[in-house]
C-alpha cells in the first residue's frame, strides 16, 4: 500500500512538473502581435522624427504583463534575434494596452528599436524568455504602402488590412455597440430578459432545492456502521431515529438555558471591600516589578 502511494506521488509530481513546463510565465500567452505597418512612406512618425515600419503588441489580459526578457524575430531559424531588455517600466504592458516596436535595424536608439527591418512577405514572431516557446507569429504577405495589416479587432483571430492605422490604439475604429444595446435591439420590451433571467434564477434555486431535498439522509449516515461487517450472531434491534422538530429543540435549549442560569446565584449588587489577611500578591510584588533592571 505504501509503495502504491509512493508511486502515485511520483507520478503526480511528474505530471505537475510537465504541466508547469507548458505554462507561460505571467500570462505571456496573452500577448498578441496585433498590428504591423511594413511600408511607412507618409504614416506614423517615431520620437526621432523618422518613419519606420512598426509592430504593435497587444496585452489581451486583464492584468499587466511584462514583455521584458522576451524575443522578437523576423527569422524562423533564429528565435532569439532581438532580446527585449528587462526591468524597464515601458515593457510592462497595462491590461488591454499596447506597446510599439520600431523595425529600423538600429537598436542603439532604445529598447523599442529592433535590429531588423520588416519586409514584404516576411515573417514576424514573439518568443518567450526561454527563446523556445512561441507566443505568437505572423507570416506577412504582400503589403501596401501606409496601410497597416492587423487583427480586425484587438486580440481577435481575423487578420486584414485596416481602414485606419492605429498604433497604440484600438484596431476596430467603427461604432461600438455595447452588449446591452445589442440585447435591447433583439428584445426591446425586456420580455426576453425577464424570461431568460427568471429561468436562470429559478434553475439555480431549483437545483439547490433538489439537492437539499434529496440529500437530507446523507448527512445523517453513519459511515462506520455502513461499512462494518455484520456479525450474523448479533442481531441488532432496529434503532428508530425520531425526527425532532426545531420547536422541540428550541424548548430543550430554553430549559437547559434556564437550568444553567439558575446555577448562578444572582447576588445583591453590593460591593464589599474587605482587607485580606495575606497582604502579598504578585501584583504588588517588588521582585517582579517592571521597573527592575534585568540582570
Amino acid at each position: 500500500m505504501k509503495n502504491f502511494v509512493r508511486i502515485g506521488g511520483v507520478i503526480l509530481t511528474l505530471v505537475m512538473v510537465m504541466a508547469a513546463g507548458q505554462c507561460f510565465a505571467q500570462s505571456a500567452s496573452d500577448l498578441k502581435i496585433n498590428e504591423v505597418l511594413v511600408i511607412n512612406d507618409s504614416n506614423f512618425v517615431d520620437s526621432y522624427g523618422e518613419r519606420n515600419g512598426w509592430i504593435e503588441i497587444f496585452n489581451s489580459a486583464y492584468n499587466s504583463v511584462d514583455i521584458g526578457g522576451m524575443y522578437l524575430t523576423d527569422d524562423p531559424s533564429n528565435p532569439k534575434k532581438y532580446w527585449i531588455p528587462k526591468g524597464d517600466p515601458i515593457t510592462k504592458i497595462a491590461p488591454r494596452h499596447y506597446i510599439l516596436f520600431y523595425a529600423n535595424n538600429n537598436p542603439t536608439r532604445g529598447i523599442q528599436y529592433l535590429n531588423f527591418h520588416l519586409k514584404e512577405n516576411g515573417y514576424l514572431a514573439l518568443y518567450e524568455s526561454n527563446g523556445r516557446t512561441l507566443i505568437d507569429e505572423i507570416k506577412l504577405g504582400d503589403q501596401k504602402s501606409d496601410i497597416s495589416y492587423g487583427r480586425l479587432s484587438d486580440g481577435g483571430n481575423e487578420w486584414g488590412f485596416l481602414e485606419k492605422t492605429t498604433p497604440g490604439a484600438n484596431n476596430y475604429t467603427g461604432v461600438k455597440v455595447t452588449a446591452g444595446e445589442k440585447f435591447v435591439l433583439l428584445d426591446p420590451y425586456g420580455i426576453g430578459m425577464a424570461v431568460i433571467a427568471m429561468s436562470v434564477v429559478f434553475l439555480a434555486l431549483i437545483l439547490l432545492y433538489l439537492i437539499f431535498k434529496h440529500t437530507k439522509g446523507l448527512y445523517t449516515l453513519d459511515m462506520k456502521t455502513l461499512f462494518r461487517k455484520k456479525d450474523p450472531a448479533v442481531i441488532a434491534a432496529p434503532v428508530s431515529r425520531e425526527e425532532i422538530s426545531g420547536e422541540v429543540n428550541a424548548a430543550i435549549a430554553m430549559a437547559l438555558h434556564m437550568y444553567v442560569g439558575a446555577l448562578h446565584d444572582h447576588e445583591e449588587t453590593v460591593l464589599t471591600i474587605k482587607r485580606v489577611a495575606r497582604t502579598y500578591s504578585p501584583w504588588s510584588s517588588k521582585i517582579y516589578g517592571l521597573r527592575n533592571v534585568p540582570r
Partner: peptide
C-alpha cells in the same frame, strides 16, 4: 427557496 426566486420578478418587471 423558490419563493426567493419568484420575488426577483420585480427586478425584471
Amino acid at each position: 427557496l423558490l419563493i426567493g426566486a419568484a420575488a426577483q420578478f420585480g427586478i425584471f418587471g
